[in-house]
Design a binder for these strands. Structure first.
Lengths: 367, 367
DNA sequence: TTGAAAGCGGTACCAA
DNA sequence: TTGGTACCGCTTTCAA
C-alpha cells in the first residue's frame, strides 16, 4: 500500500536534508542544526556559513522528523457530532462557524493546530494522525465519538457536559440560567404566555432547556407551550413558528426560538402571521447570526457564546496537556442576552400597560 | 524551549511502544509490526499472540513515527486570505463555510486531512507542520500567503485564478459568463436599468465582474449603475442598497447584489424602500445562503459553487501530488443561477408588459 | 517463519 | 567552539 519513500517521492526533486547542508558548508549536522535554530554557541562566521549554505540549497527542515524528536505534533482533531446527515456542511450554522473558528484561533495561540475530521468519523480516520487531543463539537448523548477518543487515551474536549471519564474536559452553557433569564425578561416586558420553539434533536442541552422551561412555567402558573421543529434548517423552524401562531384560540404573546434559525426569517414569519413585533408578540431568538441586529425591528438574541466556550475549553485542554493529568475537568459559562427592540415592550403614550396584548384574541378568527 | 521528550512527557503514563509489546509477547519488533499490520507471513498462532499482547497493553502506534517512515503526513494547510480583520470568523459567510467544509470532505476522501491555519498567517505558523500541500481560500491579488507557500515549495491550491507559478493550482468561477447570465435574465424579465452592488474589496473576481458588467452595459446601451459597499458585513450591504434605492431620479428596476449578504435582509431593505419584489424591482443575490429559498418572495440566487470549486481543486491538487509534477494547472467552473420568484416578472392579467415599472418615478418624492 | 539491523531526518548529549 | 553518536518509534530489507 504505502510504497517505500524513495527519497523525495515520485518525480519530485530530491529534498535537501540537513546532511546535505552540512556537506555543502563543510560542517557537521549538529553544527548546522544549532546554527539554524539559533541554539548552541559558535562563531558568527560559522553560523553565517551554515545559514548561507542552507539558503543556497533551499533547505527546509522536515517537520515530521522534528515532531518525532519532540514527541508531540501539537495537533488537535476536530469533529462535529451532530448534523451527520446535513449535506451542506456542519459549518453552515453560525454557532458552529464561530465555535470552529474560535477554537482554531485559541488553539493556535497555544501553538496547536486544528485538524478537520469528517463528521462522525471513526478511529480509522484519525488513527494515522498524530493527535495530541481531540475536540468533539456538539456530541450526542453517549456519543461513540467520545467513546473512541477516550478508549484511545486521547484527551478530549467537548462543548457539552459529559460524565467525568478520565481525560475528558467540557464547557457548557448554563442552560437553566439562560432560560430563566429570557423568560423573566419576557415576563417583565409584559408577556404572560411565552411559547418556546425547540429543535427536534435529542441533546443534553435541549433536555436541560425543556426541563428548565417546564419548571419556570410551573413556578409562574403558565401552561407550557412547547413546539419541536420537524428537522434542522430554516424551513423547519419557520414552519414550526407558523404552525404555532396559526393555531386556534389565544396565541402566545412572546416567542422564544431556541432552534437556530435565521432571525430575519423568523421575524418575517411572525409578520406574515399578522402580528406586529414587539406590539403583539415579543421575540427572542437563540442565534449567533449577526443579521439579527439589522432587521426591523432588530431581534433580541440569546448568544450561546461559542467563542467563550472555545476559549475556556482550550484553556482546560491546555492545562491538562501540560500537566499530563487525566483528571476530568469542566466549566459552565454564562449565555448572553442581547436586548433589542423585538423583545422590549413598546411604550406608548399610555405607558407600558398600554401595549396591545389583546391582539392575541383577535387572531383567532384569522385562520 | 522544547524540553527533552522524557518518554511520555510530564506525569503522563508511559506510552506503550512496539518494543514493549514485543517483549510482552516474547517476539521481536519486526514480527509484532508485521502481525499488527497484517503484512509478512507467519503462523496464525504467532500473529494472534502479538495481537493479544498489543491489546492487553493497550498499544497504539505512534503516528508521527509512521509518518516519518512513510515520508508524508497527508496533511494540507488551509488558510483564508480575505477578511483578515473580521472579528467573528472567516467562516461566518456561507460561501466560506461551504468551501471549507467541502474542501475538508473532498480531501479526506483522498486520505488527506485539513489543518486550519489562522487567517493571513506567515510561514512561522506552519513551518513546524508537516504539510504536503496548502490551500489559500480567496487570496488577495499578489497575496503574500501565496508567495510564502510557493517559496517553500509547497504545492498550492486557490479558489481564484493565479498566475502559473510552479506548483500552483487554481479553480475559479466563470465570472464573465455569470454576470452575463444574470443580466440577460433580468433583461429578459423586463428590466432595463439593472444596478449592481459590489463589495469594496479588490479581488480579481470583483474586477472581472466589474469589467463584465460595464461591457454588458455598453453592449445594451445601458448606463452602468454600480455601488460598492463601505465594508464587509450585512450592515454595509443593506446600507448600500438603501442608498441606491433612495437616490433621486429614476431608480433601477433590477438589483444584482454581488456582495455576499443575508438575502432576507436585502429583501427587507427593498421592501422598506417602498418597492415590491418582483413587481417594482427584480432581485438577484449572489449568495450561498439557504435562507433565500424561504423568504417571501423567495430570492433568486447566483451560487458561486463553493462545493464544486473544492471538489475540482482537490482533484487538481491530488493529481499534482501523485504525479509529483510542479506543472501549474487550473480550471474554470460554471456558476449556477437558482431562479426564484424575486427575479421573475410578475405576469398579471395584462401579461409581462403590465408590470409596474413606473414605480421608479413615484419614488423620487419619497425622500 | 522469525529476528537483527539499517534507516527515515532531526536534535541533544557529551567528549574533544 | 565543534563534531560524533545515540536516539525518537516504526517499517522494511535481508540474513538466519
Amino acid at each position: 500500500m504505502t510504497d517505500t519513500p524513495r527519497r523525495g517521492g515520485p518525480a519530485a526533486a530530491l529534498r535537501i536534508r540537513l546532511v546535505d547542508v552540512a556537506r555543502e558548508a563543510g560542517l557537521s549536522k549538529t553544527t548546522v542544526s544549532a546554527a539554524l535554530n539559533g541554539t548552541g554557541r559558535m562563531s558568527d562566521a560559522v553560523r553565517e556559513r551554515a545559514r548561507e549554505a542552507a539558503r543556497r540549497l533551499g533547505y527546509r527542515p522536515n517537520a515530521t522528523a522534528r515532531l518525532l524528536r519532540a514527541g508531540h505534533a501539537r495537533l488537535i482533531g476536530y469533529v462535529v457530532g451532530e448534523f451527520a446527515n446535513e449535506p451542506g456542511s456542519y459549518m453552515s450554522s453560525p454557532y458552529f462557524a464561530q465555535l470552529t473558528s474560535a477554537t482554531a484561533t485559541a488553539a493556535l495561540r497555544h501553538g496547536y493546530a486544528l485538524v478537520l475530521l469528517p463528521a462522525r468519523c471513526g478511529p480509522e480516520e484519525w488513527a494515522d494522525l498524530p493527535l495530541d487531543a481531540a475536540i468533539v463539537a456538539d456530541p450526542l448523548d453517549d456519543d461513540p465519538l467520545v467513546e473512541d477518543f477516550v478508549a484511545a487515551g486521547i484527551p478530549l474536549f467537548t462543548d457539552r457536559s459529559v460524565e467525568g471519564r478520565p481525560g475528558t474536559h467540557w464547557v457548557d452553557v448554563d442552560a437553566d440560567a439562560a432560560v430563566r433569564e429570557v423568560l423573566d425578561h419576557l415576563r417583565e416586558q409584559g408577556a404572560r404566555r411565552p411559547a418556546v420553539v425547540l429543535p427536534g434533536t435529542v441533546t443534553r442541552f435541549h433536555r436541560a432547556v425543556t426541563d428548565s422551561y417546564r419548571r419556570w412555567c410551573g413556578g409562574h402558573g403558565t401552561p407550557p407551550r412547547l413546539v419541536h421543529t420537524g428537522g434542522p434548517g430554516d424551513g423547519a423552524v419557520v414552519a414550526a413558528v407558523e404552525d404555532l401562531l396559526a393555531g386556534p384560540g389565544t396565541g402566545p404573546d412572546a416567542l422564544f426560538v431556541l432552534a437556530e434559525a435565521s432571525p430575519p426569517l423568523v421575524l418575517d414569519a411572525v409578520h406574515r402571521a399578522g402580528l406586529r413585533v414587539p406590539e403583539d408578540l415579543l421575540l427572542v431568538c437563540a442565534s449567533e447570526d449577526a443579521s439579527a441586529a439589522h432587521t426591523h425591528p432588530p431581534v433580541t438574541t440569546l448568544s450561546l457564546r461559542p467563542a467563550l466556550i472555545a476559549e475556556k475549553g482550550i484553556e482546560l485542554l491546555m492545562a491538562a496537556l501540560e500537566s499530563g493529568s487525566r483528571e476530568p475537568t469542566g466549566a459552565v459559562v454564562p449565555t448572553r442576552l442581547e436586548l433589542r427592540a423585538s423583545s422590549l415592550a413598546a411604550r406608548g403614550p399610555g405607558g407600558p400597560a398600554a401595549r396591545g396584548r389583546a391582539a392575541g384574541g383577535d387572531r383567532a378568527g384569522r385562520a
